[in-house]
Design a binder for these strands. Structure first.
Length: 847
RNA sequence: GCCAGGGUGGCGGAAUUGGUAGACGCAGUGGAUUCAAAAUCCACCGGUGGCAACACUGUGGGGGUUCGAGUCCCCCCCCUGGUACCA
């Protein structure tokens, strides 16, 4: 970069607002403006090129030299819309920490990649004929260009892409591990079938009975699906949360999702059949209050036990329930529906015969698919009993069951709860105690047992799509034959045209040659799976591939894994708080059990960045027209300003609105810095080589301390504020000490690395700031000689005094009472108390 | 309904965790500079009263603890995110 004069010719402003006016007057104006703006575009491209050419940010594979720090972003799905200002928020935060940790002497792993399988590219292919691979590559190129324009310090040699064969080879390999461990199985599942999209959707992709994408209607249809047995890990996924450094709210979301509840399983013999209806309840204490039972419409016993004269109405109800989409279920949720089977069950505690009903308020997918109904102490049962005039019996006193169900566990006392022979009674107990006692009794008598249930369901792991990882299996009729490792990867066939099969199978059903595999020895024909894996698959383990991205022999090297794992800091959007993080944790635990990874959890510290809202305070969306384009911001203000502003807006984890004049503020800060310290010849102004004055020294060391502490706490906004305070202080000096300016640049470097590097080099340094040691602060410079104390009278500040640090109470009070304003407020009053908090405050209480 | 987080100037947000509320920035006002505007620089900037020193008041609302509360306790209101017939 040459001198300032050249800088003035090349305007950083894209001059569109000036039109074609080239009058002398206009040129004069341009000249003035340019003199006032620092040449960020030249500086930024210069340093980005420098970092790239020197591979400045390459993570070292020397696994012993330095302590490691693994800092990870949630890698993006490269959509056609390009980067959104929300993306760089998290990326900037991680980049600042990555740069900070490098300066702190860590070997930093900070990689980026692409979660590139997914429905949009496939839909685009169906609409336009463009192969998903082509469209995906284009999108990635755009994302990469945009991300690189912000000067992030990724180690690009480790870039990965989930749609690369070399990558998904190992995704398939992990699937085989799961399969071999018995954690992958096939099942006929009533799934969310969307005729419009020609695919089955996961629950999380269905919103109010419509597809999340496109809003098409969704109905339920049974299909053969791959499932992963995540429920086998439910308990570990729950308990291992405790040791993680994640926000409580995210941990709670996961806990709720796993939904562990403790209670009992109870068997109710069915009258006249050699069957018993098993139910799960969290309130075994209320067994004596069970006045009827309910089975889910899909319950296997329904047809068997239904009385012949009820058969017609039960069957009609069952069919109706089956057809109901989720939307219908929600809509009808307000009113309970159901039908009597004509059959009765025997309540094991009192031998009473109670009617068995069928209703869709009981779900087949939770517990046993049947419940004992205790209308007096369960709101749902209460509503149902009221609707169908079933009896309601109080077994916990303390509420008014003529009004509503009484559901409290700590209040209330058990009543009407003893077996006819009086051998078992819980009368008089608190429900919480009765729950335990009943559980023990059920175990002892064999009428039931203590049990635990989870809300978490097994993971529906197949999609009827082309653009996903093919399953590495062959099919021989109903038999499943896994491919051997040497047959991996099983690559996607290249299709001339991707179109729905129409049968509900994926477009792969159209690829006849790919689909059928002939065994050359026997001539036997096997078929491939037409389902592909969901998008979650690739993102479940990408953090492991970053450790060893080019390895062709194994998914990752075990030694490297031991060194780099766990991820020390993982930052991403809260939308992945549950599913992605739960699925990835599940795979990680499986890999841990198999000995492929050394930690039981993958992500030690997790932070969710808040959303960046539009200027109107609303969520950014095309329809609202409030979307901010990062390219425009970078073009107009530069990457350093963009980075700084995104961090200055407010705490990382909170949602906050974008504000264009706010960005002007940080832009002015960088401009002032440049303008003040860089002279007209493009060099640094004359600096003072002498030791800074006391005040400057204090400011300098206080800044080192505060910025460092704030970075450790991810409190970027207050760190930047301190940089502004420090720089304002330096600008007010007659002569700026060189050491102070150097310190400022080092502190600024993680936040605004381009301008920091440029000014650092203008100071005559030939090294990069990237590995410059982070400055150390000296506590002795932070200790002041005197301190300003507020003097309060009755809690109101009436004066301020300067005293020596740790001054004696007597001396402080003497000075305080000497103040005119204090005398005034104390005069003629009785002093009740004199409080002196050393170096903090004085409070005189009078009456 | 349930779970979690949050309500501080005109705006984004600070506040050493009980010790001078409003750091830093934006917007605004006044001044310098300019033929003029923009940019830049300086000053002011919660509200009410006062020429002023200053006084009163003020962190969603109401109570409480304390010499002292944005911060701790109790009750209530509002906003955001998650979840929803999970027995």
């Amino acid at each position: 970069m040459s001198g300032r004069s050249e800088v003035q010719i090349l305007s950083p402003r894209r001059g569109s607002d000036y039109g074609a006016d080239l009058s002398p007057r206009f040129l004069f104006r341009i000249g003035k403006i340019m003199a006032e703006r620092y040449p960020f575009d030249q500086i930024e491209s210069k340093w980005q090129k420098y970092w790239e050419e020197n591979k400045t940010f390459k993570a070292s594979d020397n696994l012993t030299e330095k302590p490691k720090y693994y800092i990870l972003d949630m890698f993006p799905y490269p959509s056609g819309a390009g980067l959104h200002v929300g993306h760089p928020e998290g990326y900037t935060a991680t980049d600042i920490i990555a740069r900070y940790k490098r300066m702190r002497g860590f070997n930093v792993l900070h990689p980026m990649g692409w979660d590139a399988f997914g429905l949009p590219a496939e839909q685009y292919a169906i609409e336009t004929g463009t192969p998903p691979a082509i469209k995906t590559a284009e999108n990635i190129a755009t994302f990469k260009r945009q991300i690189q324009s912000l000067g992030f310090s990724y180690d690009w040699d480790r870039e990965i892409n989930t749609t690369d064969e070399a990558y998904y080879k190992w995704t398939q390999w992990i699937f085989l591990q799961l399969y071999k461990k018995g954690l992958a199985y096939e099942a006929e599942v009533a799934v969310n079938w969307c005729p419009e999209l020609g695919t089955v959707l996961a629950n999380e992709e269905v919103i109010d009975g419509k597809s999340e994408r496109g809003g098409h209607p969704v109905i339920r249809k049974p299909m053969r699906q791959w499932m992963l047995k995540i429920t086998a890990y439910a308990d570990r996924l729950l308990t291992d949360l405790d040791d993680l450094d994640w926000s409580e709210s995210i941990k709670d979301m996961q806990r709720n999702w796993i939904g562990k509840s403790e209670g009992a399983e109870v068997n109710f013999p069915i009258n006249g059949f050699d069957l018993s209806l098993k139910v799960f309840t969290t309130r075994p204490d209320t067994l004596f209050g069970a006045t009827y039972m309910v089975m889910a419409p899909e319950h296997p016993y329904v047809q068997q036990i239904t009385n012949p004269d009820q058969l017609e109405s039960v069957e009609a109800y069952r069919v109706k329930a089956e057809r109901k989409s989720d939307l219908d279920r929600t809509e009808l949720a307000k009113e309970k529906s159901g039908v009597f089977t004509g059959a009765y069950a025997v309540n094991p505690v009192n031998e009473e015969l109670i009617p068995i009903w069928v209703s869709d308020y009981v779900l087949m997918s939770y517990g046993t698919g049947a419940i004992m109904a205790v209308p007096a102490h369960d709101t749902r049962d209460y509503e149902f009993a009221k609707a169908f005039d079933l009896s309601i019996r109080e077994v916990v006193s303390g509420g008014d069951i003529t009004e509503e169900a009484f559901t409290q566990i700590e209040a209330g006392v058990m009543v009407n709860s003893a077996t006819p022979d009086a051998s078992f009674s819980i009368n008089g107990l608190k429900p919480s105690v009765a729950i335990k006692k009943t559980g023990e009794w059920l175990e002892k008598t064999g009428k039931g047992k203590i049990a635990v249930n989870y809300k978490l369901r097994d993971w529906l792991f197949s999609r009827q799509r082309y653009w996903g990882e093919p399953f590495p299996i062959l099919r021989d009729g109903d038999d499943v034959i896994p491919l051997s490792d040497s047959d991996l990867p099983l690559t996607l066939p290249v299709l001339d045209r991707i179109k729905p099969s129409g049968t509900g199978e994926s477009p792969l059903a159209n690829a006849k040659e790919w689909l059928e595999v002939v065994d050359p020895a026997s001539g036997k024909v096997y078929k491939r799976e037409t389902n592909t894996m969901p998008q979650w698959a690739g993102s479940c383990w990408y953090y492991l591939r970053f450790i060893d991205p080019q390895n062709n022999d194994q998914a990752w090297d075990l030694e490297k894994e031991k060194y780099w794992m766990p991820v020390d800091l993982y930052i991403g959007g809260a939308e992945h708080a549950v599913l992605h993080l739960l699925y990835a944790r599940f795979w990680h635990k499986v890999l841990f059990d198999l000995g492929y990874v050394s930690t039981k959890e993958p992500f030690q510290r997790l932070v969710n960045q808040g959303m960046i809202l539009g200027m109107d305070g609303e969520k950014m969306s095309k329809s609202r027209g409030n979307v901010i384009n990062p390219d425009e911001v970078v073009g107009q203000y530069g990457a350093d300003t963009m980075r700084l502003y995104e961090m200055f807006m407010g705490p990382l984890e909170r949602s906050k609105p974008w504000n264009t004049s706010g960005i002007e503020g940080v832009y002015r800060f960088l401009n002032r810095l440049w303008r003040y310290f860089v002279n007209d010849e493009g060099g640094i102004i004359d600096l003072d080589d002498a030791q800074p004055d006391t005040e400057t020294l204090t400011m300098m060391h206080a800044s080192i301390k505060k910025v460092g502490n704030d970075l450790d706490a991810l409190a970027f906004n207050t760190g930047i504020s301190q940089l502004m305070v420090f720089s304002n202080h330096l600008r007010a000096l007659n002569k700026v000490p060189k050491s102070a300016l150097e310190t400022l640049l080092m502190l600024l470097n993680p936040f605004a690395p381009h301008i920091a590097e440029e000014m650092w080099s203008l100071l005559g340094h030939s090294d990069t700031l990237a590995y410059k040691g982070w400055p150390e602060y000296d506590e002795s410079h932070l200790v002041k000689d005197t301190v300003k104390l507020a003097v309060q009278v009755n809690g109101r500040v009436r004066a301020q005094i300067n005293v020596e640090v740790d001054a004696a109470k007597e001396a402080v009070l003497e000075l305080a009472f000497a103040q005119e304003s204090i005398k005034q407020h104390v005069q003629g009053k009785t002093i009740i108390k004199e409080i002196v908090v050393p170096n903090r405050i004085v409070n005189i209480v009078v009456k």
